[in-house]
Every structure is written in structure tokens, then in C-alpha cells.
Amino acid sequence: MNRFVKPLCELNGVSGDEGALRKYILSNIGDNPYKIDNLGNIIVDKKGRKTPKNKIMISAHMDEVGFIVTGITDDGYIKFAPVGGVDARVIFSKRVRIGEKVGVVCVVPIHLTDKDKKRDIPKIKDMYIDIGASDKKQAQQFVSPGDSVYFENDFVCYGEGFVRAKALDDRFGCAVMLEMINGEIEYDTTFTFVVQEEVGLVGATAAAYTVSPDIAIVLESTTANDVADVEGLDKVCSLSEGAVISFMDSRTVYDKLLYDTAVKTAHENNIPWQTKTRIAGGNDAGAIQVAGSGCKVIAVSLPSRYLHSAGCVGHIDDMKSIEKLIPKLIEAFAELDL
């Protein structure tokens, strides 16, 4: 597996709090020229063997979904709100970290729950995190409103080639870019590690304006629903069946020429690929496409189960497919007649 995946997933960086990621990435880009913009995006210009006809940008986001502390109750419990699209069901009864503190999301015992409410999940605004503080004053020593709350960090390889990690969305994309920055590439490329994707594509909007590319490739994780009792097209996409090349999602209609070229490139190079069978989700491509005077966009994604939960799951074969495909796409897009 790409050597950067595990360390990147183990860092914490809820949207707007990506400092630890920035530090790690900057220490792993070698001597390549870079700048950090006013929002905290990292923009790295990597020289290739040739200068392309079309300016190419590759982008992945550094942030992850999580929570933010909104207040502390008199008896020392932490109130919180989601940052990004987190499912209330996956947070209930899970462990979280706030700074160095471990906390748990409280559950009213099933024994004390009315019979007709035994499957009801409370709204996140009605949940509490318990760090073991006996009152407000003690909790305030460790936690303040505005602090980021993270899912517990467990990086697990299981089954036949599956990887479960917090923030695989989109640290895998960051890892692919770091590996390319540290290697040799055919054409000059600008890599952007952007902030705040999960709260509305904020970082990418600014970075794409600054870079002003002709073509942008967004590296992402996308929803795979290939779990038990799901058949056919409802799976959306499946693990170990290749890189996901999207033609459309809820936010973006991808450039037809780039889509067709990407599919052809995958075929010609025998790289496993698939597309999504449902128009769902969205990513930074939506913002990049319309930044400044606009550009052509495409997204290449890692199919991921349990997206936006405490840990999403990817497959090692798909990681390899994406790592093979992206350098080939740069070559295919560099001289394309747009």
C-alpha cells in the first residue's frame, strides 16, 4: 500500500482544523515549489519532463468529517454539532477524541427506553459526549466550544485486501498526490491539497481560482454500497472492481471529452475501472469547474464503504488501479485538443 495512506489517516483534521495535515504534507513534498494560500490550501508545482499544452491541476482534500464542540452542560457533558455530513446512527455509542481526551457518546440504556422507541436514534443535537468530568468546571479545563471532535483512530487491514480507516476520504487522494510529487512525472502538474471540502467545497473554490487550470482531476472517495442484501445497480459501485470514473453526480456533470478519454486510457492500459450507477454525492469538482473562467473537470475515486462513518473501507486493488491510472491520465490530457 502507498506508504503515505496510514500516517495521513491517523492524523486529525476536521474541516477548518487541517493544521496537522498541512504540517505532515509540507514535510513530505521535498524541494518542489509550493505556496500556502490564505485559506490554508497547499499548492505544489511539480515539474515534469515536458510542459503540457493544457495546464493540469490534481486536487484532493485534506479535511475529514467530524464534530465541533458547541457547549458544556452544568453536569459536565459536551454538546456538539456535526462538521460535514455525518450520519447520526454511526456516532451513537461510539468513542471520540477531543484533543487528548477520550469521550463517549452517551446512550440511554435500552432497558429504560419505551418499547416503541427502541430503534429510534436521537438527533445529534440531543446527544451528549461524556469525558468523565464530574461537572462543568472540570470539563472546561479540557474542552472549549469550537474544539474539534474526531472519530477514534483505528487503522485496520482485514479480510482479503480491505482497509478500514478514519478519514480514508480523502487522505487516500492526498497520499496518491504525495507519491507522485516524490516521483517522476511526464508533464508539469499543479497539485492542490485543499481545506474544507466537507463543509461546502470551500478550499477548492479558492485554489482553483489561483491555479486557473485548463483541466482538473479530482481525487476522491466515493460511496460504494456493495454490502449485504444490495443487488445490481443499487450497489452504486463495488470494492475491488477498479477506479471509479464518474460521468455525473449530484453536484457536477463531468466533461464528456475527459470522461471518454479517461475510459479509453483505462482500457488501453488494462487498468480496472468502473463508473457509478447512481447520481449521488458531490465533491470539489463542482467548485473547481466554475472557479474563475471555469475548467474541464473529471473525478477519479476510490470506492469506499461506510463513507462518513467512524471508519470507511477501501480495497488495496482499487488503490493500485488509481495509482496506475492517474499518471496515464496526465499523459492523455496534456496534449488533448480541448
Partner: peptide
């Protein structure tokens, strides 16, 4: 090792 399956919120 196992994970209890869950549908993603988008779907």
C-alpha cells in the same frame, strides 16, 4: 475482524 454494515447517508 468485522464491521457492521451500514448504508451511507447519501443513499
Amino acid at each position: 475482524y468485522g464491521i457492521i454494515c451500514s448504508k451511507p447517508p447519501h443513499l
